[in-house]
Design a protein around this nucleic acid. Structure first.
Length: 511
RNA sequence: CGGGAUGUGGCUCAGCUUGGUAGAGCGCUGCGUUCGGGACGCAGAGGUCGGAGGUUCAAAUCCUCUCAUCCCGACCA
């Protein structure tokens, strides 16, 4: 690509990752048709291609939630201000980014014309657009739970959320986003702990088995935990620009919300006790995570299990007659693959029927949009009874007899799915470092960009954690639950203070 | 909320310094030639230049006010 174009995208390409990672990401998301900035400040429009990806994620996650005993429900998006005030830490965490509804009516301005908020229509109590639903849900649960027989209560909600972010970024940080939030109630601390861990593992499985994104399972420090939680579990992924991205969290809320909303139950022995709670969520940020994990300078690379379009058939013709013939052949081929299955489901196949664009344009276009496999079907193939199959992740092309496709395509998709995970895992391993000297630590996080995952010793105090963050912008992403290497759990000396440390923790610059 | 910038066809922008009544590229429509790695020609459609007020014979251009957005900081799934 022409260098004089700098970071401005040319008509054809997107900026390269090495040139400007963050522009690469933004351009890619927009150009691939995933999402765009809306005219509504700080909000995005999720376009059909992006939404289809979200729907595939939803389906997979929802199946896992159902399989672990959860049911879906829906709660109001308005949170009365007084609800939010009930859990002290929780308010403190979210108050700074709340959108507030103060009135319920508009009227025509008799003076200036146009609409104004009707001052007569002020709400008695302001309503907050939910930044998360713990308060509304626990207010409800207080009426639903009386007996140990009502427990456990295992509910999930698919919803939109509003957090008034100052620096929006498509999928990573927008003022409104989509997510799922689970809210469960349990009789004992241990049972809630099991639930939080169970979901934590569901999230890991989803990230690795579906997204092909390896994650570190760990526990958040006191500084980084959810506002209002007893403790928080997280899965942390590494992006191609060597930053950490939090991909999902599962919180053990202890009895904090039960006490704030007076949710008690009678035990089998007749005692009155507060229930224990968990909450957990993943959001459309997972789409951003997916893009950051696998995509390249040509466009999206999507794991076959989640890709909205797994296979695209591009008919190629020289003249009207051969165009017509290959288009018909393409449609016959798509229909003939109707019985084929990958991952237990029909293949998601698209025939590119566009007549105006050239084959070369289409190849690039589908690479941009992240179709996993591309089938080229031209006059030569019609004669030979075969097609050319091109892999999105490796750019390998091979000629495959048409009758073999029903078997070859699912096999190719499966191979791609597992290769993406292997590749991402190798990338993470190559960019995970064990550091014992402060100079080396600071050097690794100096300047712009990430610095990868760094496993280092920490004395366990919030003061040290904050000091390190101020000096290097690196934060403790988590205390890993399972060591990446056995030696990580051996004691050592804090990277900053030199004081004793029981084990290494995971540092990184985060999104 | 502090610092910086920008508002001109659907999109990206030029024009503004030195006022003279609006341009380009992309996209869109039609026709023709192309077509196995990002094609091209010709002909079209489309803008009261963010809004209000002012200066002037004349304002996209100068002045005042206003609205909005973007970028850099504090926050963040």
């Amino acid at each position: 690509m022409c260098h004089t174009l700098g970071t401005v995208s040319s008509k054809q390409g997107i900026p390269s990752r090495s040139e400007n990672y963050s522009e690469w990401y933004n351009e890619l998301v927009v150009r691939a048709g995933m999402a765009e900035h809306s005219s509504v400040a700080g909000c995005m429009v999720i376009k059909p291609h992006g939404y289809a990806l979200w729907e595939n994620m939803q389906r997979a996650l929802d199946d896992m939630f159902k399989a672990t005993g959860h049911v879906n429900a829906y709660f109001p998006m308005f949170v009365p201000k007084s609800f939010l005030a009930k859990e002290a830490e929780h308010v403190e965490g979210f108050a700074k980014e709340c959108a507030v509804v103060t009135h319920y009516r508009l009227k025509l301005d008799p003076a200036a014309g146009g609409l104004i908020v009707d001052p007569e229509a002020k709400l008695e109590e302001e309503l907050i657009l939910r930044p998360t639903s713990e308060t509304v849900i626990w207010n409800t649960y207080s009426r639903w739970i009386q007996s140990y027989r009502d427990l456990p209560l295992l509910i999930n909600q698919w919803a939109n959320i509003v957090r008034w972010e100052m620096r929006p970024r498509l999928f990573l940080r927008t003022r409104e986003f989509l997510w799922q939030e689970g809210h469960t109630a349990h009789a004992t601390y241990e049972e809630a702990e099991e639930e939080a861990a169970r979901i934590h593992e569901v999230y890991r499985r989803f990230a690795e088995d579906w997204m092909a994104v390896p994650v570190v399972k760990g526990r958040k420090t006191e500084v980084e935990k959810f506002a209002g939680a007893d403790h928080t579990y997280t899965i942390e992924a590494l992006t191609q620009d060597l930053r950490a991205i939090q991909a999902g969290t599962s919180h053990h809320l202890g009895q904090n919300f039960a006490k704030a909303f007076d949710v008690t139950f009678q035990t089998q022995e007749g005692r009155l006790e507060y229930v224990y709670a968990t909450s957990w969520g993943v959001s459309t940020r997972l789409i951003g995570t997916l893009v950051m994990a696998h995509s390249d300078d040509k466009g999206l690379v999507l794991p076959p299990r989640l890709a909205p379009i797994q296979i695209v058939i591009v008919p190629i013709g020289r003249d009207d007659a051969s165009k017509q013939a290959t288009l018909q052949a393409a449609e016959r081929l798509a229909a003939s693959l109707g019985e084929a299955r990958y991952d237990g489901r029909p293949l998601r196949i698209t025939v590119d029927k566009r007549t105006k664009e050239s084959p070369g344009f289409k190849f690039n276009d589908w690479e941009l949009k992240g179709a996993c496999l591309r089938i080229e079907l031209g006059p030569r193939d019609l004669e030979s009874g075969s097609v050319v199959v091109a892999r999105r992740d490796t750019f390998e092309k091979e000629t495959v007899p048409t009758e073999d496709l029903a078997e070859a395509l699912p096999a190719e998709l499966a191979e791609m799915q597992s290769r993406l995970l292997r590749k991402a895992l190798a990338f993470r391993e190559a960019n995970t470092h064990r550091v014992d000297r402060w100079e080396e630590f600071a050097e690794r996080f100096a300047g712009e960009g990430g610095g990868g995952f760094v496993l280092a010793h920490w004395d366990g105090t919030p003061e040290t954690e904050k000091e390190i963050a101020e000096r290097t912008k690196a934060t403790i992403r988590c205390i890993p639950l399972e060591p990446l290497h056995p030696d990580d759990e051996k004691p050592g000396a804090c990277i900053l203070t030199g004081r004793p440390s029981p084990r290494r923790v995971l540092f990184a610059k985060a999104y």
